[in-house]
């Protein structure tokens, strides 16, 4: 029948064994859960990486040799504030998201 409800996909399109691809939650952006976001003061940062290590959502990314700072991917940041709390130099500030 035609789709007249919230069905996600047709029976014949379901993957056998109802499986999902590895790491595919990257298609699910959790950034819109956030009410506050981390802002990094790059001057004070000592690149210790605690924000990267302790982020429950793994949003901080190693930027490679050209950029020593770890930068938060706001597509996924839920705004918990662990990074700001754990930063030994207090160089991350949580600021209110503008609506």
């Amino acid at each position: 029948m035609d789709k007249n409800n919230d069905a996600l996909m047709k029976v014949k399109d379901l993957p056998a064994g109802f499986r999902a691809k590895p790491g595919s939650t990257v298609d699910f952006k959790t950034g819109d859960w956030r009410s506050i976001r981390p802002v990094l003061d790059k001057e004070k940062c000592i690149y210790c990486g605690f924000c990267y290590i302790y982020c429950p959502d793994g949003v901080y990314q190693d930027q490679g040799p050209e950029e020593k700072h770890y930068i938060a991917d706001l597509d996924f940041c839920k705004g918990c504030g662990v990074c700001a709390h754990e930063c030994p130099k207090k160089c991350i500030t949580m600021v209110l998201e503008e609506v």
């Binding site: 590895p22 790491g23 595919s24 939650t25 990257v26 298609d27 699910f28 952006k29 959790t30 859960w33 990486g49 990267y52 290590i53 302790y54 982020c55 429950p56 959502d57 793994g58 949003v59 190693d62 991917d73 597509d75 996924f76 839920k78 705004g79 918990c80 504030g81 662990v82």
Partner: peptide, 22 residues
């Protein structure tokens, strides 16, 4: 410390600040 891609991807639905998912 391994800096490569996490083995657990972002986009999971754990609560804000979840210590378990960390």
């Amino acid at each position: 410390f391994p800096k490569g891609q996490d083995s657990l991807a972002s986009g999971h639905r754990a609560c804000q600040g979840c210590g378990e998912v960390l």
